[in-house]
Design a protein around this nucleic acid. Structure first.
Lengths: 204, 204
DNA sequence: AGCATACCCAACCGAACTGTTCGGTTTGGC
DNA sequence: GCCAAACCGAACAGTTCGGTTGGGTATGCT
């Protein structure tokens, strides 16, 4: 439950991944302690390095995993961006570690890294492309630059993914997040309304 | 020019602050090296600790400074949020270190810190209050929760404050950022239109 | 029985870091 | 010239960490 992408089995490799996900989300790459990861995973440092080449590579692995899991959980639907934003909010706001895990990499990894196949860059480019296509088929207002659409939706959707202290106590947190979700959906709907569904699919 | 809040004089204390600002923005708190700060400031570690109690306290100092400088540079005008968002974009997108400096603190400092007078929390609360008042005077649509207004404007305004590789090469970067600025202003205008200015100021 | 694989544990290496100390030098006011 | 403050450079103490090594156990296959 603590690990973001809890594997189905409970092998040593899986426990290492779960423990690393937790550790990196909390302390970042530089702040993470391999010894602590090993202890949490009920194994030894030696095993961690048997499965992963280095601490940084281990981070890349779990971060990529988290990104993929998020891609599965929240499906980008360029014809219904308000719904997409709501799903993103649900996925992240209820599990702040998921957001933190990604942010650490964005700050700690100098942009001169894995340029050809970086999963994050690829994911972004893919989303922009999907939005561009939706604009061509009339599902989305073509007046906006697709990069802006993608960025604004992401930014609004993740507005409340980092606990700020504004969120109040833990008792009313669900209600709080639900209200924030409604505002997110409304804002995105106002900027990029969902397609009504009654339009010809480009060639009809 | 490199330091975000370059002091007017060039005393040792000022150079330490400038160097620390640069160092923290690039490497974060844990990643910053006091020795490197001292060298950049053309002084010694001994001097750094003569002016500041610890590395973390030094970070808090420069981060607070940066926050204050930003508060001066971009004035929140609840009656004209699109203009405010544009100013925030100008202030941050052209100087990504400014944004990075703040983000590090948000990730690295556990939320159990300086709860009573944390400048960041105070700044947020203050902005929310300003927005709430504008809603009461009719400058802003009172249908939104003020927290959402503040957060959405901030998120949209900072959309392009972190270089993503989408920004293209350095040659066309100015044009790129200018286009992004226009989109930001338009988006905020659509969500929270600027007051027309021809309304009675609450008591007329 | 033989063997390979997975595993544990503890020690270890080399490097790096924070924060302090200290002897000696410069600077500027009086 | 005198003195105090600011400063420098280098070393130091104490700790921590990433990553490696090596000896030993458990398991399961053939």
């Amino acid at each position: 439950m603590l690990g973001a992408v809890t594997a189905s089995t409970d092998s040593t490799g899986d426990r290492i991944i779960a423990a690393a996900t937790e550790e990196f989300a909390r302390y970042g790459i530089a702040g993470a302690r391999v010894e602590r990861i090993a202890r949490t995973a009920r194994t030894s440092k030696e095993r961690v390095y048997a499965y992963h080449r280095s601490k940084e590579q281990l981070y890349r692995f779990v971060a990529g995993r988290e990104l993929a899991a998020m891609g599965d959980a929240v499906q980008l639907d360029p014809a219904n961006l308000p719904g997409y934003a709501g799903r993103v909010h649900d996925h992240l706001a209820g599990h702040p570690q998921r957001h933190r895990l990604m942010m650490w990499g964005q700050l700690e990894l100098p942009p001169g890294e894995a340029p050809p196949d970086d999963p994050f860059q690829a994911s972004i480019r893919h989303k922009v492309q999907r939005i561009r296509e939706a604009q061509q088929t009339g599902d989305l207002d073509p007046a906006w630059a697709p990069e802006d659409v993608m960025m604004f939706v992401s930014q609004i959707a993740t507005s409340w993914s980092v606990p700020t202290g504004l969120s109040g106590d833990s008792s009313g947190r669900d209600a709080f997040l639900a209200a924030r979700r409604a505002a997110i959906v409304m804002a995105v709907q106002r900027l990029f309304p969902a397609a009504t569904g009654s339009h010809p699919p480009h060639d009809a």
